[in-house]
Every structure is written in C-alpha cells, then in structure tokens.
Design a protein around this nucleic acid. Structure first.
Lengths: 221, 221
DNA sequence: CGTTGCCCTTGATTTATGTCAAGTCTTCAC
DNA sequence: GTGAAGACTTGACATAAATCAAGGGCAACG
C-alpha cells in the first residue's frame, strides 16, 4: 500500500495536495507482532489509524473477562477515527493485532484542524460516520432480533461473492464466533447442522455454499 | 418549546442568525395522534426531525413481525438526522408516535448546504455523531455480553437521579422491555426478584431504589 | 355502573444456547 | 519425527429466557 493508494481512501480523498502532505508527514508507521496491543479501552486517544497490512481486532471485555469482538480490521481500513470528535477523547474499545501487522498512526489534531477549514472533507467524514452508524444499527438488530444460526448464516452470505460459492475464511472460527456473539461450540454445531442439511460443505477454513437459496430461506424462518 | 430554546439545541447552536432563520423558515410543524406513523424503514428520506412534545418510538421489525425498539425520542431530541449524509438516503428504522406529539421537520438539503459552507457546524454534527456511535457501541456491548437482568438494572440506574431515589417511568413496561430486548414476562419476573431481594420498591410506574449500592453490585456479578 | 380492552403478573413448560469435560486434528517448532 | 499448543468437535448436562396459557387490576367509555 503506497502513498497514492492511501491518498484515494475516503478519509483522504477530499484533501488537497498540501493538506495530504501535511497529514502524511505527521503520520507514524509501526509494526505489531501477533497479540501485541495497540491501545486499550479508556486510554486517552491522540491518534487514529490505518491498517496497512495484517489484521487488528477491536474488542470489549466483560467484567468476567469474556471477550466480544466488535470488528476485525482488514488492510485499507481506518479505525478509531470517530474518537477524535468525541469529548474526553478516550478509546471506547481495545485493539490488538491478530497477526503481524503494519499500521499508520495519524495525529488527531492535524486532521481536525484541516476539517476546521475544509467543509468538503467534513462531508466525507460525515458520510463515513453515517454509514458506520447504519452498520451498527444492523448489528444491534441482529443481536436483538435474531438467533445465533441466523447470524452465522448471515455472515456466510455476506462473505460469499456473487460468482464464486466458495468462501475462504480469513479469520479463525473462534474469532468469527466472538464477532457473532456465539460460543465456539455452538458455532461448530450450527455448521454441522448446515452440513447435514446439505446447505454447505466445509473443510477447515474453506466453506462452500451448496444451496444459496435455501440458505437465504433460513434467514426468514 | 419556543424558537429561542430550539436555537440552543446542539445541531443549531453553531448556526449564525441568518443560517438559523433559513433553517427555521423552511421547517414544517406537524401533529401526530397516538400510533400515527411518521415514516417507515426503507422510505426515501428528505427531512430530519425535532420532537417538540410527546414521544416517538424508533423501531425495527423482524420478518416474524417482532418489534425491537431502538430508541424512544423525548421532547428536545433530534432524530433521523444521520440519514442526510448517507448514500441512498433511506430511513433505517420505523418511526411512530406513542402519544400525541408535535414534531418539526427540517429539510435535509437546506441543512446540508449550510454545512457545506460552515465548518463550525459540521464539527458540532461530527461530535454529535461520535457520541451517538459511542452510545450504540455500549448497546451492542450490553446485548452481547450481558444478561437481561443486567440490562434492566442498568436501565434503572441510568434513569435515577443522583439525589432522588424515585424513578417515574415515562413509558410502559412493555416498551421498556422491547427497548432492552426482553419479553414483558421476563421483565416482570426480574422486577419481582429485585423486590424480593429488597433492592427496589415498585408500584405501577413508580419505582424506588432502596439499595443503590447493592444494585450496582448486581451489574458486576 | 358493567363491560371492554390493555397492561401486567404468574405458573408451567419448552427451547436455544451456554458450560464443562474429553477427545481429535492440525500446525509448527525443535 | 516427536511433542506441545492451539483449534475444532462432540457429548452430557445446566440454565436463562421464551413461550403458552390464564387470570387480575385498572382506566376509559357507553
């Protein structure tokens, strides 16, 4: 991921050359080894991040130490950028690398001061934020109104392309389970049932959708 | 709620006199009777709203017709304002009056065009949005990581003031149950248990917190 | 009044999902 | 290749919450 590619990402696309240079000059690159923490919930937030390579999990912990994964960041995605507009400016989640990763850290003040003079940029951010909120709303919907199998089937359909019916899970089943707020045992059983019903084939991280229509129908029942 | 009060609300506080006049001149007031719908999920969105009096529920429906209340809007609150920055511009939820209500509808284009020239205003909106996202994140946390009784106790503690230990529920228990994603029967049983444990007293919509510390402790177990 | 409708409660039962425990399979280091 | 650690699966069991069903209380209304 080079400078030109970064420049095209939504948070930067509306910047002019000078603004972009300023932002990228003040950015800091760093490498993370697997399981290395980037920040913790409650910490004071001075930067937002772009993932260049690897995978980062954003998660919450319950008092009993149970982990709920809020999001798995993939290369090219920004994260923790909403924090810079919040009072208090504290990270609302924990962030840890799942695998070896490279991130770019951008200074909140630098970006904010650009926004203060550039309505085009703020519209881009506003549109990003409203998309995000829509996303979270859907997540709340699924958690509140739908069963564990619904959520898993939904996940499968979200991650399968139009043409190919083969899915290559990029994260472990445990991690998916946590994202969907299911226990790994339950996920395993749901997958077993889908297999026995002839809806999918599964081999490790390779999952093949055999009957897409029938899967969609599961969402309605 | 008069013009001066409206002017002080966060989405308008950063507007100058001329901008505010433009916004308020193009607004439309309307009255809703109980159970009257304001908009439906998926409808094209041209306005956002301020609730002047009454109560509005924002909710989603599952395929089986089950209702999940996302939010109960109280007087002085805006709603559906994030939609104006989204592509597609469709309402992501349904909105229905719970009781007789008055709303003010503001034109998305008018407000958006002001933002395009007024960085101060967009910062105010950005800060509002990030606060909202934080809220939603907490809701996801509670749904994913915590039990029904946790959610109800949390709700009680959120709605009790520092000084008074008396809570006057402004909405029905059914409605609260739907907001917390609990069935009414379950809510009734949770309340019964809290009563029998001597933590609260309850009479209809009047709930009195008897032991605040013990209630807080329930959140940790 | 009485009755109608709604909100709330209570009891009995079911069900989805979690928990605990054990075992297999895979990967990867040495 | 061997061993260790982690990922995944499976079975037996426990449990929170949903569901189904019935009844009580209360306000509104003729």
């Amino acid at each position: 991921m080079n400078k030109d590619e970064i420049r095209k990402l939504h948070l930067f696309a509306a910047l002019d050359a000078q603004q972009f240079d300023h932002v990228s000059e003040t950015s800091v690159a760093s490498k993370l080894v697997p399981h290395q923490n980037l920040f913790f919930q409650g910490e004071s937030a001075s930067h937002f991040y772009l993932l260049v390579s690897g995978q980062i999990k954003l998660y919450l912990l319950s008092p009993e130490g149970e982990e709920k994964i809020i999001d798995i960041i993939q290369p090219g995605q920004f994260f923790a950028e909403a924090v810079m507009f919040m009072e208090g400016q504290r990270y609302p989640v924990n962030a840890t690398a799942l695998v070896e990763s490279e991130v770019l850290a951008f200074d909140n003040h630098v970006y904010r001061s650009i926004i203060e003079n550039s309505p085009r940029v703020s519209l881009a951010v506003l549109s990003d934020f409203s998309r995000r909120m829509h996303f979270m709303l859907n997540e709340i919907d699924r958690l509140a109104l739908h069963s564990a199998s619904y959520r898993f089937v939904y996940y499968l359909l979200e991650n399968v392309s139009e043409e190919e019916s083969q899915i290559d899970l990029v994260i472990s089943k445990q991690t998916i389970a946590s994202q969907l707020s299911i226990k790994p045992e339950t996920l395993s059983r749901i997958l077993k049932r889908l297999r026995s019903e002839g809806l999918v084939e599964a081999d490790g991280r390779q999952i093949k959708i055999l009957d897409r229509e029938a899967l969609r129908a599961v969402l309605l029942r």
